[in-house]
Structures are given as structure tokens and as C-alpha cells.
Amino acid sequence: MTKFKKYLQFMMLPASICLFLLLSIGTMAQDSTAAVPVKKPVKGTFESNWVLDNQSVMVPIKGTLEMDMQHRFGTVRNGFKDFYGIYAPANIRLAFSYVPMDKLQFGFGFTKERLQLDLNAKYAILKQTKGGIPVSITYFVNTVIETTPDKDNQIYVTNGDRMSYFHQLIIASKITDRISLQVAPSISHYNNVEGVLDANGVIQRNMKNDHVAIAFMGRYKVSEKMNVLINYDQPITQHPGLKKNTNPNPNLSFGVEFVTSAHAFQLILGNYQGITPQSNNYFNHNAPFKYTTADGTEMKGGMFLIGFNITRLWNL
């Protein structure tokens, strides 16, 4: 690996932060010069920071402290044997976020899988207005550090190999009082990818470092307190997969959401077990339906699992 490449890897985080700040400053400058009456933003497009496995377009109001508790059980395929995955090993994430100024949220979280520590930020670039702007746009970025102990550098050659990044542009619209839709293209980047020896004994990448995907989400408001949610993630990048198919699978998830003044509860049935978005997009091997990949590999379908998201809000 060249020095230049290592340098690029380490620059991903500061570059992300700079891009993020530039976007913030640009939008603040526009706000300060606006003297014309502003149309009121549409509220309640989504009612939590989460839409099942993805971020929603929402950034909570200034001064909001949020605690997230997320759980993904094992797949339901074993039935009573492990009670539909509830007794199987689970993935857990505990996270906190805070909104120090309008439209901007910072957060961090801890995920059990590969002992990931994530640092994230979310910024509302554009807000849908009544009779005006048709969509809301939010940018989400995170950086994950895998903290798995590796004394002899068996997994990570350098500390940079522990890092991964995720960028997502979230575009949403509240179509009616009951229906909201969201589309969110994303790019995940892993510094360290799996390698395999080719016929000449040379190490080749089994997956690309970057992975592009797109997510589609919808919400149907059943009542003031209850929503039905649906989410579909489609991988776009095709990976080399020299010795086996390494393309991640799509994800289909459904859920119900119960919202109160300070909480949102989401009960989920989906394929993703990773919780952190880059892990989900890059490593998902649970398929929603049976299908054949481009290289002819038969993928088994119906690998669903139960999960939940709980958020608790405080207004400081």
C-alpha cells in the first residue's frame, strides 16, 4: 500500500467534516440574508431519527438530547428452536445524540458487532414547505472505528484498517398527512477489505473499498400515535468476488412505530443485522427473497430477523 493511499484513507474523516461544515455555513449564510416571509416547514414527515434500518430525514429541534437503544435478534428460520431468533446471538447498539443548533445533530454510539464505535452527524440542508419546496433534504455522515482487540495485528495491519465511513443524502417528502416517502442514496467506504490469493499467488481484493447503495422508505400514519413503516435497500456496486460471491444482499424491512411525547418504539422484521449503516450495506448476507446473482450463485431467501429501535428524547 502506497503512502499516498494511506494518506487518502486518513483524510476521509477530516474531508467529511469539512464538507459538512461548508454545507452548514452555506445554508446559514442564506438564512441571514433572508428578509422575505418564510413559508412554514412541513412537520412530522417522519417522527423519529430512524426509519427501521436507515436514518430518517428528521433532525430534532435544537437542544434535543436523544438516547437510542437498538436490538437485532437472530434470523427467524430456526423457529421454536431458538424462538424465532430471540434466543440467538443478537446485535445491540446504544447511542446518544445532541442537537446544539438548528438543523445540526451530532452523535456517537457503540455496537456489539465487531465492537464498533461510531461518530455521526446529520444536517438538514433543505426543508419541505407548505405550498413551496416539495422535498426535505438531509445529509448524514458517520465514521466507524472497530475496536476489536488485535494484539498481533492479525485482523488490522494499521489502525487505519479499523476505519469505515458512510455518507448518505436523504430526500423525503410528506405526500399527504398520512403518507411520507423517502429515498436515500449512500456510499460506504471500508479501508480494509477482504483479500484472496489469485492463481499467481498475488493478493487480490475480494470486495471493492467503496459500495454504493440506495434505500427507499415509506411511512403510513395509522393514527396520531402509530405508523406503519417499510424500507428497502438495494446494493448497486458489484464486487469482484474472486473465490465466492461477495455481493451484499438487498434488505427488505417492515415495522410498526409507536410515538409518544418523548419516545419512539419501532418493532422491525427485516434482513439487516448490522445496525451501523455501512456494516448493513456492505456485509448483509440475509436475503429477503430467493434469487440468483449475476455469477449464478443461488441465494436463499426469507432470512428475516426481529429487531427494535427505541429512542428517548429530552429537551435540554
Binding site: 412530522g44 396520531e224 400515535k225 409518544t260 411525547s261
Partner: peptide
């Protein structure tokens, strides 16, 4: 009513 259900009803 939406606000009532969310914040007050409980």
C-alpha cells in the same frame, strides 16, 4: 389533536 395525543393524552 395531533399534539394532544402525542404530548398530553397519557
Amino acid at each position: 389533536k395531533e399534539l394532544w395525543v402525542k404530548h398530553c393524552q397519557s
